[in-house]
Every structure is written in structure tokens, then in C-alpha cells.
């Protein structure tokens, strides 16, 4: 394993070689991992909200599904990836508090899937919804995505 690169909340990073991208504790947020297995370029985004229109005061494009996914793809292309070869895996979008009426997690997952569809990137695996937190680890060498949780153990996407 190369470097472990942390992706924060409302953040995105691109890696290659033996590096591993990690984002901790996705709740209603959605983690999107995009991979080009020929170029071995991997990208990970951690969005908080579905759309830039939900917040008038913050222009951080990494924060919203409708701006972050495009930007992630753009940065991956700069590192030698090709959109045609890209595939995506997503995780998160949970509903953490049963009583909350705003379904942020579902909105986030739907918005990310919509963006992937617009860009023509196939979604090959998803571990979304339910009511628990997930840490997401993405390996540049083979595109493996490991999901870790306190309540439901670990799985590989």
C-alpha cells in the first residue's frame, strides 16, 4: 500500500499507483468512488448535500452532488483517466435519525446517481441507505472499495 489520503467532508481527492483514498464516517453524506482501471486512476468525493441550490451562502463545489461529481471527473481526466473507461461505486446516504422528516441521505444518493447517469459512467456497486455510518476505503491499484461500519461489520464492493 502507498499513501493513505484522507478525503474530508465536502472534499474530493484523486490518486493513482498504490495509493489508497479514505473517507471516514459517511452518514447521510454520499461517498462516490470513480475508477479507470486501465490508467489506474481513482477518485473519491464526499458530498454533504444534493444540490448547490440548497445553500445560498457557500460556493464550495465539493459540497454538492450536482457540482462535485463533474469536478471529480475533470480532475481525474487531468491525471490521465478517460471518461469512457470510468466506473463508479457509491456508499452512504443513510437515514441516521428515524424521526427526521428530511430524507437528506436519499436525496444525496439520488442526486449522485443522476450525475453519473448524465456523465455516462456506469454504477457497478452501491452500499447505500439504511441507518448506519460507513467508512469508505478506495484502492488505486485494483479499484477495490472496502466499507467499514461499527454496526454491520465490513464488506468489499
Amino acid at each position: 500500500m502507498g499513501n493513505l489520503i484522507v478525503v474530508g467532508i465536502a472534499d474530493l481527492k484523486v490518486a493513482s499507483g498504490d495509493d489508497v483514498l479514505i473517507t471516514y464516517a459517511l452518514g447521510s453524506c454520499v461517498g462516490t468512488c470513480i475508477y479507470d482501471k486501465t490508467a489506474k486512476v481513482i477518485g473519491l468525493s464526499h458530498v454533504l448535500l444534493a444540490s448547490k441550490h440548497m445553500c445560498l451562502t457557500d460556493n464550495n463545489i465539493y459540497k454538492y452532488a450536482d457540482t462535485a461529481i463533474k469536478e471529480l471527473v475533470r480532475q481525474m481526466v487531468l491525471r490521465g483517466a478517460s471518461v469512457k473507461r470510468m466506473t463508479a461505486k457509491i456508499a452512504g446516504g443513510a437515514h441516521m435519525f428515524a424521526s427526521s422528516t428530511i430524507r437528506i441521505g436519499e436525496q444525496n444518493s439520488a442526486a449522485v446517481m443522476e450525475e453519473l447517469k448524465k456523465l455516462g459512467i456506469p454504477l457497478v456497486a452501491a452500499d447505500i441507505g439504511d441507518n448506519y455510518g460507513r467508512t469508505m476505503e478506495c484502492w488505486a491499484a485494483d479499484g477495490k472499495v472496502v466499507i467499514k461500519s461499527i454496526l454491520k461489520g465490513n464488506k468489499i464492493l
Binding site: 464516517a25 452518514g27 448535500l49 457557500d58 428530511i102 448506519y132 467508512t135
Partner: peptide, 18 residues
Amino acid sequence: DMAGAIMSYPASLFGMRG
């Protein structure tokens, strides 16, 4: 659950207001 995952709920609410 994990603190980060729990905070995503208030974070998304205050995220709407920055």
C-alpha cells in the same frame, strides 16, 4: 454510531445555511 456519521445530520442542516 460513529461521531462523523451522526454529525452528518446537523451538518447537512447547517450546511444549507453555511
